[in-house]
Computed example of a mutant assay.
Amino acid sequence: MTHPLFDRDSARSYTERPPRQVPGFDSLHRMVGMLLAEHAPENAHMLVLGAGGGLEMKALADAYPGWCFDGIDPSAEMLKVARQTVVPHADRVQLLQGYIASAPDGPYDGATALLTFHFIPREQRLATLEHIFRRLRSGAAFTLAHISFAQTEPERSQWIARHVGYSAAQDADPAQLRQACDTIRARLTILAPEEEENMLRQAGFTGVALFYAGLSFRGWVAYKP
Rank of each mutant, 00 (worst) to 15 (best):
R134V: 00
A103G: 00
D91M: 04
T116G: 03
Y99A: 12
P107F: 14
L126M: 05
P107S: 14
T85F: 09
A90W: 06
E130H: 06
A140T: 00
P104G: 07
A103N: 00
G139R: 03
A90C: 11
P104L: 06
L129K: 00
R122A: 15
H131I: 02
P107N: 11
Y108T: 01
L114W: 04
T116C: 15
I132Q: 09
H131P: 07
H146R: 00
H131T: 04
F149E: 05
H118A: 05
T112D: 08
H146N: 13
A111W: 05
G139S: 04
E130T: 08
V86S: 08
A141N: 05
H118Q: 04
I147D: 08
I100G: 02
R92A: 13
E123W: 06
T116N: 08
P88H: 07
H118S: 00
A101C: 14
L136T: 05
L144W: 10
H118Y: 03
I120D: 05
I120W: 00
A145T: 08
S102F: 00
A145M: 04
F142V: 01
L95H: 09
F142H: 06
T128I: 08
R125T: 13
D91L: 03
D105I: 02
R92K: 13
L126D: 08
I132T: 13
F133H: 14
V87S: 14
Q97N: 12
L144K: 13
Q124L: 14
I120F: 07
A101M: 10
F119T: 03
L114I: 15
F142Y: 12
Q124K: 15
D105K: 02
A113L: 08
R137C: 02
R122L: 13
P121N: 11
H118T: 03
I100R: 06
L126P: 04
A90F: 08
A127T: 10
L144V: 12
L126G: 01
Q124I: 10
R125D: 12
P107W: 08
L96K: 03
D105L: 03
T85G: 01
F117S: 09
E123M: 11
T85Y: 03
T116L: 07
Q124T: 14
Q124Y: 12
